[in-house]
Design a protein around this nucleic acid. Structure first.
Lengths: 242, 242
DNA sequence: TTGCAGCATTGATCTGGGTCAAGGACGGCG
DNA sequence: CGCCGTCCTTGACCCAGATCAATGCTGCAA
């Protein structure tokens, strides 16, 4: 069980030079807490498509996303997939203080994560209120975000869903790099296939495709290639998203 | 702003005799922690339909549900309501460590809650890791539950949605009282109107009504009155829910 | 370069659930 | 007791998005 976790690219993590040192749960921790995390954490590289956690598995590890995009998902009984959320740099993955992992995690792009054996992490968290507090804050905002997504799934039509998806994607990946340059074209690579977008939004691949085509025809976006999007009319897209 | 919070039924809370003393975040706390909570918490009675929190308000308070059922909800731009979840006895309400309340809270039945000024609660939580840990565990399971609900909203048809709703309702309210008596008929009062059920499930009132009628005709449930449900064929309902 | 495998797009058709509209049941109140 | 307001049910119709099916594009491998 553990083998598949440790089979490659393990190296010591160096919090000092970590890209998300100031944004993840590590932000604002005291030096001794950081060095404890440093001691139990390891970096791991994931190739696009590689899995980090399997739904229902014993929850043996938790992780911080350092770079890349990952998806959290469950299967329905009839084999369809529902993506429960996406994780970007500085997001936290896994289920501390729990027995099993309630969803699968798979890298959509090549990714770097900082992994902890759950038992180690739980222990450090219990002993260090500062860390636990960070984790609580993060979990609370994740809960808020998830609840907002429920509104999207429960009450929006296909057009609104896709507009919201593109806008959220644009914001979340902008946060990852440097600040937005206003006026700069909002062009980026989509880390998801059409099928995966459909799974995120609770739609079918055909509907997603048709909505893309329509938005392009209307001049709201451009699609330079299958895996690239340019948001041309940000304001109009936001109107749709409402 | 605070007036509407304190306008009635305020009395000192007595954790010792509290019905949820051993199930809410209070469970397993040390005596000194309990007495601190006791000092800052107050009981409040809510009539069915009364609101405790308003979406977007400054987050001035948090609360534990002692008895009754409450709904968490947001409005969409076009005025529709989406219910984000239901809260039962021992559930936690509100947004600690946050500036604004991300959803409205309204009592569906007459209810008792144990309320805390958020500032007080935050302070005690920061100073008492045990409490913070409880809160973290509760938030993590709430996140899990919410994510499972996304699957319902994103991937299920009306029949599956209603079946799941009835089963969850049955379980959650059974947890509240004594243990299930096997063989005992599973009959209880619905705390939600048809419209509210529709809002929970992302459906319309007509569709909910039709599904109820169909399940009754198929002998899966009985509807002794508008606000009562009897689950007759638990197993078959579970088949539908899958 | 050709062939093939996997996405993605597009079209044609079907259908679950939304919408609109008309009663029906129940309670509260004069 | 009957009137009215609210909630619920039922029917008729329609449409957004699912489903089914054919074709196009792109990249890789031989």
């Amino acid at each position: 069980m553990q083998r598949r976790v440790y089979e490659d690219s393990v190296s010591t993590s160096y919090c000092d030079t970590c890209a998300i040192r100031n944004r993840a749960i590590c932000a604002g921790l005291q030096d001794d807490e950081i060095s404890l995390l440093n001691a139990i954490g390891r970096r791991r590289h994931l190739k696009a498509g590689e899995r980090l956690l399997w739904e229902g598995d014993e929850a043996v590890l938790v992780a911080n996303v350092i770079e890349g995009v990952l998806k959290l998902s469950t299967q329905t009984v009839d084999g369809k997939e529902q993506i429960l959320g996406l994780a970007y740099a500085s997001d936290f993955l896994g289920r501390p203080f729990g027995k099993t992992t309630p969803y699968g995690v798979e890298a959509l792009t090549d990714a770097h994560v900082c992994i902890f054996q759950r038992a180690d992490f739980d222990r450090v968290a219990r002993e260090h209120p500062g860390l636990q507090h960070k984790l609580l804050e993060r979990t609370l905002s994740e809960l808020d975000r998830t609840r907002r997504w429920m509104l999207l799934l429960g009450r929006m039509n296909a057009e609104q869903k896709l507009a919201n998806f593109l806008l959220e994607m644009s914001v979340r990946r902008a946060n990852v790099g440097c600040a937005d340059v206003p006026g700069e074209a909002d062009v980026w690579a989509l880390p998801l296939s059409r099928q995966q977008i459909a799974d995120v939004l609770g739609l079918t691949i055909e509907t997603v495709s048709r909505q893309f085509t329509k938005m392009k025809k209307d001049g709201l976006i451009d699609l330079p290639s299958r895996r690239e999007v340019a948001i041309l009319e940000h304001a109009k897209l936001e109107d749709l998203a409402a």
